[in-house]
Design a binder for these strands. Structure first.
Lengths: 352, 352
DNA sequence: TTGAAAGCGATACCAC
DNA sequence: GTGGTATCGCTTTCAA
């Protein structure tokens, strides 16, 4: 059996209460005694029993908040599942985790929800932002007030957020370039389809893609100028149609945003499904269908569930044990999906 | 706050002890009273507080055992880390988890360790077997005696193991075929390098590979007859050298076992590094080097950490709550690694 | 500054 | 059959 605070108390010749205050630096304890206690604890390698701690904590719980923008998207729905699982797990520790889902881009609404959650007593926030100019300042405010914020899926780098968890889009772009390069050993024309011009994630994906192609000495790959489709399938369809007409020998399309369905439709109608390499993002129902029928060559996936699941736990540990995340940027894995390794896997996770 | 057994006791007009026995069907309780208690519990949606349960359990702990064969391999070392993490987590629940590592193939040693652990009081076993004829019978014996066994990494399908967690090698082979097919749009000669002829995992990888190539109508890909290298790099080197001499136009090599280093060396010496596609298994230090320098095109990885981490938790829940795994075959993810998405990721996992 | 004691929720044991 | 009580490890009053 592991070391208990009781044992330390006996060795130090004090009571458990004193040990507790000393080890948690709660003050009201003689410095000399505190030093002795710390020394004994260190020697014995004392680790507080988390179950004992958790049990006490069920008495007075506290609140956490989670806000997801673009909540209607398939990927964000997986993120939401992660949040809900975390909520269920933390519930037995007395934590009340409230999830707010905001459809599409709505910066004012986001700021509103932040205020509302904090007023309602949330002591930490997990936020999946998506384009919100004033957000950085608000996050700094909260941090100042002692309300930690974890960003997920999309970061706000210029803020004092506790940490970010999500994809490294630059590396994801590099990975896509590698796949494209390997898929086109003889080279050919490649068309990059972008999302919004000011979307950081999409831009990083494009930059990684361009840089890795350059680094790979893919001189025989001719990059057409990229075009934005504003995340809309109909625009993507139209653009792709046009590009195909102008470039009958097109060999590959890289879709850095939404739009893969429109692009694939245009390709199919041109009778080139399976011939032109298409690389796009995220594993969800429509993309799985495209992978199965051969329209989509590769889908690059992120660990969406994890992105929702971890932040509440990170906040919990930060608020309770002042435990700071190991790194400010917690990058999730870059997963390459084909029709053969793309069942939507129920995350393998130990029960709470 | 959630419903407690105390509340049920008060509503039923009995004591907590009675409620506990009734809800767990431990007997020694008036059937009518038991029915009343069950009814109230159901109405209130009572869920025992897992923290309370866990705390009680710290009193009398129990033992679990884990045995890993081929423990010296890089992949199995990652599995071992998973086991150790699980051990650390379960430790605070009073579980003592003993890990035995067996180098290379040593069937008698495996059976010996099983007996030893059980004699020492292990109430459940996690085993990574690797070729051991009498194992199935032994697992059935244990299961009979009430000692559940979870197989990991490599299965013993013809046994009464509680479940298996590991890779679906057939699907992994299919995935490899897809990658090879996409990488060789113009077709060409492909050489499959096998491991031991009687290794089920390797055979499944080969079968999946062959089947998916056939299904992909890859008629322009000419498969050379496969050859076993017995997991030895020197044999792989020699074989590859020979194949290269006989087939100057070789386009790809599929390594279903160990041997990728020997194969890559032979390719490099023939001045064809980066030209010939090489697909092999597992992400470890040597393979990462090969990916970086372009010798290895793709590495297909499995969730090795997870394979070690989960079985102890599965055994714990089975022994304590009779909770059976959702499926007998828990397949881990099939991960495609390139030089751009292959940092050995510390598994993202919530702290205990 | 310190200690004693209560309590978190579930379980096991021992009386009755 | 049943109820009371001690217990797990820790935190938190409340007195002293």
């Amino acid at each position: 059996m592991a070391v208990t605070s009781q044992q330390i108390a006996e060795l130090a010749g004090v009571s458990r209460g004193t040990v507790d205050r000393a080890l948690h630096n709660r003050g009201r304890v003689n410095p000399e005694v505190a030093a002795r206690i710390h020394k004994i604890a260190a020697e014995l390698g004392y680790k507080p029993n988390i179950i004992g701690q958790a049990l006490v904590r069920t008495q007075r719980g506290f609140k956490l908040g989670a806000i997801l923008q673009s909540a209607e998207t398939p990927t964000m729905q997986i993120v939401a599942e992660g949040v809900r699982q975390a909520a269920a797990e933390l519930h037995s520790s007395g934590v009340e985790l409230e999830l707010r889902e905001i459809p599409s881009l709505d910066a004012p609404k986001l700021l509103e929800e932040i205020d509302d959650l904090v007023e309602n007593g949330a002591r930490g926030l997990a936020i999946a932002p998506n384009n919100a100019p004033e957000l950085a300042a608000r996050i700094d405010d909260l941090s100042e007030k002692g309300v930690p914020v974890v960003t997920l899926n999309s970061d706000v780098p210029a803020s004092r957020r506790l940490c970010f968890i999500g994809m490294d889009n630059y590396r994801a772009g590099q990975t896509a370039a590698y796949l494209m390069r390997q898929s086109l050993p003889a080279g050919g024309k490649v068309f990059p389809l972008a999302g919004h011009l000011n979307n950081t994630a999409h831009n990083n994906r494009l930059n990684g893609f361009f840089d890795a192609l350059r680094a790979g000495h893919a001189d025989d790959i001719e990059l057409l100028p990229f075009q934005p489709c504003f995340d809309r399938e109909d625009f993507a369809y139209e653009i792709t149609q046009h590009v195909l007409e102008g470039n009958p020998s097109l060999a590959g399309i890289y879709v850095a945003s939404n739009g893969q369905q429109g692009a694939c439709r245009a390709i199919a109608e041109a009778g080139k499904a399976g011939t032109i390499r298409v690389i796009a993002y995220d594993l969800n129902a429509p993309n799985m269908q495209l992978l199965r029928d051969g329209s989509l060559t590769y889908a690059i996936d992120q660990e969406a569930f994890e992105q929702g699941y971890r932040p509440p736990h990170i906040l919990y540990e930060y608020l309770l044990y002042q435990k700071t995340p190991v790194k400010p940027l917690l990058y999730t894995d870059i997963l390459i999906r084909t029709k053969y390794n793309s069942e939507l896997p129920k995350p393998l996770r130990a029960a709470p």
